[in-house]
Design a protein around this nucleic acid. Sequence first.
DNA 1: TATATTTACTTAAACGATTACGTAAATTTT
DNA 2: AAAATTTACGTAATCGTTTAAGTAAATATA
Lengths: 335, 335
Amino acid sequence: MSGEVNIKRLAQELNISIATVSKALNDSYEISLKTKTRVWTLAKALNYTPNPAASNLRSNKTKTIAVIIPCVANNFFSLAIKGIEEIARQYGYHVLIYQTHEDTEMEKSFTNSLLNGRVDGILTSVSSNEYNDEYYRELVKKIPVVLFDRVYESLDTFKVTTDDYQISFEATTHLIQCGCKKIAYLYGLDQLPAGRARFMGYTDALHANGLEPREELIVKYQPEEEVNLKQIKQLFQDQQPDALFSSIEEFIIPAYSACIDLKLNIPEDVKILSFSNMSSARLLHPSLTTITQPAFEIGNEAAKCLFKILNKKGIDDERDVVLKSVLIKRASTGC
Amino acid sequence: MSGEVNIKRLAQELNISIATVSKALNDSYEISLKTKTRVWTLAKALNYTPNPAASNLRSNKTKTIAVIIPCVANNFFSLAIKGIEEIARQYGYHVLIYQTHEDTEMEKSFTNSLLNGRVDGILTSVSSNEYNDEYYRELVKKIPVVLFDRVYESLDTFKVTTDDYQISFEATTHLIQCGCKKIAYLYGLDQLPAGRARFMGYTDALHANGLEPREELIVKYQPEEEVNLKQIKQLFQDQQPDALFSSIEEFIIPAYSACIDLKLNIPEDVKILSFSNMSSARLLHPSLTTITQPAFEIGNEAAKCLFKILNKKGIDDERDVVLKSVLIKRASTGC
DNA sequence: TATATTTACTTAAACGATTACGTAAATTTT
DNA sequence: AAAATTTACGTAATCGTTTAAGTAAATATA
């Protein structure tokens, strides 16, 4: 009936040129207010919206950013996305989501598919299965990239992280102050700076309190869920640790499950503490002491950094943004 | 240095026409295998990827779908997205995410911004703040839409839902069998078919067991978190219900908190049961009996339906896909 | 008043792909 | 061997914008 409504159609109806319509819509100084008003009015009346493909093609701007993360079904990342989305909305940007499932090959494949002008920039938290910084070293030259939480060091771009080392040190110290002497470490992200910083915070805190980190007290995360439960049970049987410090949320369920299965009382027999953004942490039995990262704010901040690059404002700002996590002491550490 | 690599560049280097390159890349029957191989080889060597804006513009295909949901930071939706993404990947599609924060105005604004060819189709779970079916009645005429979980009835498109009524009936019956006679209902999504079906399952199960639903035992969800806790506490003080049936996950934390605050024992003093995709449900104290929706599968199925429309295959299939939720009995209902 | 500048447009060329249509050569059919 | 068909390309239009460059009229400057 009415046909597709594009600037050509607007131009015809108003009996002016396509260029004038385009410029009017973009509020160009070259167009008189009178003409602009005519264009705007008709555009609204006909419910005109610009064809994104056409303007992307011509202007090389997509008004779209990509978020590449391991998995959306994770409290930290879903909150981060929420934070990212909020900022994207403010700038009128669209948000593409890609899940790598911790696979750097996927990561490369996704980012490569974004290099031909599908997006204006990329926000990413890298995958844990491999240390892949050379790839990113090249990537950041080709497209604006901001890394958050899981970053590589010394990349020439903005990075938003948390105080992993310090908070981990603080948390370990808390366990020690609660009387723990044999603190097991549930190790995640061991390929990444974030994971190593957490581990360093743990070992340094041990040292600072005259304790020695011990290889036998470390359990490394395995992607297959059941394995972690088995490993933790084995750990309890072999080593009888008096605390579990979990560096990632994924260990919480197997850790609690192991205690239930082995009839260990938390915090009497063993204290538990974990990095986590789980909203139900305080409803667990007993309520879980957590290191909670400001996930929403991280997403927020990362997005803001990306828009600094895209809008070429504040590029001289400090490019290593470090936010603070909080240690929330609850019953699982019992003091 | 090498300049942007597009089909023009490929054509020049191979000394053939742009059209031939384009057709070769699209594996057209018009092109000889020999030429195709030359093109493919060079394309790979130069790391050519087609400019999406250009092909979108010309072909009116974006290889992109949009997912419009209330919020990603919700176990159900993040799992659903995971399910959607899996299918999208298989078809080589990109996924845009929009969060409405339960605001139908946002919803309209987002969908309107997608009608000019930004995406090939839309997957959505509607907002709860308002019954908005007229809008969707028009929308489905303009663009392929699949609704999941939170749908409107009698829309001319695919809908993926769960057996809300039946599972709610079953769950209520379970509570009654556990001896409950005064089952309060924590009412969410009351503007939507899904919410009403859950409520109907509850009331019908009461009737079927000789119990009368009572207005005073109903608490309606409020967006402001603290209010729900207050309401539930008030409910306990005024009515002393012997069970809480929560129709949405958001009530879990205030429900448990209220019990803790009022020193009510679960399940002795009050039994609790909730719709939920919370992975920590079995670690709560006591472990929570849940109605768990197959969130991942819902996303999966919804995406499959959308691709049926996009690929014009199976359009004659049943368009009301209903998946089964499961009632997972745990300690909070104590029997 | 003649010249320079500003205002408010228009024309037309991009952007990078797809595709209808045209065509010469090779092959098949009669 | 002539006609018809198939194969394998090329030409050029097109998608809906943006924008450099051009221009006539209006206004400002000298």
